[in-house]
Design a protein around this nucleic acid. Sequence first.
RNA 1: GGGGAAGUGUCGGAACUGGCAGACGAGCAUGAUUUAGGAUCAUGUGCCGAAAGGCGUGGGGGUUCAAAUCCCCCCUUCCCCA
Length: 812
Amino acid sequence: MTTDYNPKAIEKKWQNRWAEDGLYEVNEDSSKPKWYALTMFPYTSGDLHIGHWYAMAPSDVHARFKRMQGFNVLHPMGFDAFGLPAENAAIQRGIHPYKWTMQNVENMRRQLKSIGAIYDWRREVITCQPKYYKWTQWFFLKLYQNGLAYRGKAPVNWCPNCQTVLANEQVLGSGGCERCSAVVIRRDLEQWFFRITKYADELMQHEGIDWPERIKIMQNHWVGRSDGTEISFSLDHQAVNESEIRVFTTRPDTTFGVTFMVLAPEHSLVTQLTTSEKKAEVEAYIAKSRRLTEIERLSTEKEKDGVFTGAYVTNRLNGDKVPIWIADYVLLGYGTGAVMAVPAHDERDFAFAKKYNLPIRVVIAPPDWQGQDLEEAYIGSGTMINSGQFDGLSDEKGIEAISDFLAERGWGGRTVSYKLRDWLISRQRYWGAPIPIIYCDGCGIVPVPEKELPVLLPEDAEFKPTGESPLKYNEQFVNTTCPQCSGKAKRETDTMDTFMCSSWYFLRYTSPNTDNMPFDENNIRYWMPVDLYTGGAEHAVMHLLYARFFTKAIRDIELVEFSEPFNRLFNQGIIIAQKQKMSKSKGNVVNPDAYVGELGADAVRTYLMFVAPWEQGGEWNDSGISGISRWFNRLWKLVINNYKAKNENTNKELKRKLHQTIKKVTDNLEAIRFNTMISTLMEFTNYLGTIKKAGSITAGEWRQSVETLLVLLAPTAPHLTEELWQRIGNSYSIHNHPWPVWDEELTKDEVITLVIQINGKMRDKLLAPASITEEEARHLTLSRQKVKTYIDDKTITKFIYIPKRLINLVVK
RNA sequence: GGGGAAGUGUCGGAACUGGCAGACGAGCAUGAUUUAGGAUCAUGUGCCGAAAGGCGUGGGGGUUCAAAUCCCCCCUUCCCCA
């Protein structure tokens, strides 16, 4: 039976067979080492594009490799199914979010199956299903009971178009909404928060986990720990109870240079402090700054402006009266919402002082400074001056000395500040997990009892084009009774940020059908933590930081025993087309289904891995994928057509090439270097091609070589190899075949090429046995005719010999 | 402005701890074969040069017997943050 390679037919055939046999069903098995290979689950957008393939196909290859190596491999798949687009579809097209989402799931599941991955669909997780979000709510209650969830008022990013709160990460650099681009404004709302800041320091520690350096750096920037000093300025004001205003600074050594103070416009003391003649001006300024986004306020492009409140504080170190200003470059949420301004030594303060003609007092002497006015802020180091008893100290020593001095007198001291803020999880939306909280006039905030979970989303919700949450107006949902006093009460109508759903889905895969707990303890102990987590780098600070926080939080609640969910993280790059990111508007979107239909899933999988290093991302190119197709066709014929041996002696070179190939393919897979792994397999195929023509190995060697090649290629091209495996008369399934091992001794070359350089330039080559000594090499080199013409009448001043590599003669 | 990654043929990309630059694939060229197909096979393909040879990894300098790889300065691109 010799037919042509027909990927369409064989792929369908084997996918059906594998599904029928449950070949990839995975169960806990303590007799095998486990391997948890996780790919970030996709959002239910409706269509599996080439970017999904780029994320999923290579990770499946790696998981299959581990499986063949004898690991019990969990490589699950599911759907991140809550989120705004489903709700927009409901508003625009009148289709219920659940229906829209599940239709998308159907389609994407079908497309996912065409990849030919080892997903065990019995373990599928869909976050919008009640059996899943019941446990999302349960975790909320656990966090609440343990003081890690709280309700608070806070200025939030509000998109007037979507009518919802956005996380900082969801606001574009331009200050627009991530989804609709409308200008985001600031607004105060009662919200639910998770106390992620409690874990700020632990989140900056990545010891013991193998993550890309740049992701760790990005997370640490996001947490933004800054060690500094808090300084109290005394306040004496009849309208205000407080007797001080505290500021945070990393430069307490410049405290004698403070010439004004700046408060955030939202600072709680501003209204009381403002004098009557300044009131109108201040109020106008506050109104103006409310319209600006945080990004705009902090932008270095924007000129710093502000308003004097008419009030003063006193600098305790030198008794100076310091005027209090407000300016929008100071944020309430960072530090104390107040900064001491030292124009001589801070760029922003300098610009501000120049603009409003405020004094500039130098307290750190710049090099060669003669007392003249500064042209610009001096932010470098130097000796303290104009600082009373601290004069003469270096700025470094001054930081210590002043901090200590303040601490002794109770005027402040060393402290730590973070950029990280608590995680705001409330969303004024329908399509998310409802926050399981009830508000009772008598009892206050009452958590929904566990036995009443899940708090279901009402099916009869009405989706208004205004975008307001339908839950708010659903009487049946809102009105309830208090679990404590049985009186009339109202439900929380906000739902949870979908990052909450994705903070624990990897736990659910271990026990997707456990119904009395979110997961089975034994299964968690068996599978977790994830051994290899792969996905896009765009999740560096959001999902990955939240998932780490969540894990640490439930560790402290004693639900799990580990601190880090993902041992090794790997970020794949982005697949582009025609030098650009793919997008519908550019019309350069590559549709994987079309290529799968024509050239096969195996070719698409292989091409995506071959095109470039996975972490780098690559450009889709039609002639590139046809190169893979050609290789498969050649391989097909090579294996199918009979081999005629013209030699009965075993071939040492073949054995060496075979073992070198096994070694390189294995090492490359382990290191996640798929492109070179594939080129190694191509080289071996080409080598077998020349062997076949010559008939230079025995029939037994031929069979062994072909079988090994198929096994090595099996993770990459699972359908093609299964078909050929069967056609050469081997038993089903190649995917249960153990991974080949190599013999290090057999990989070593017996004959080596020594490169001969003269003065560092390559002039000649020498074939020699690997066992050659330096003396022999020198002798052989000097007797070469070509070498003689170069050294001629010159003298050899140096003879460099690098065993098995080269000889370099330095001549004069 | 700060942080990170990267610059290698016509293109995607190889090159282990410094040791033959350009593996593998694409493209192109020539030839073979064929019931003109985006098939298959063979050969060639960094640049200059007739050749000998010389020059070549963004640019400039340095270390070294030897640099794509290490160090310093500069330029460009991309990503993240402000």
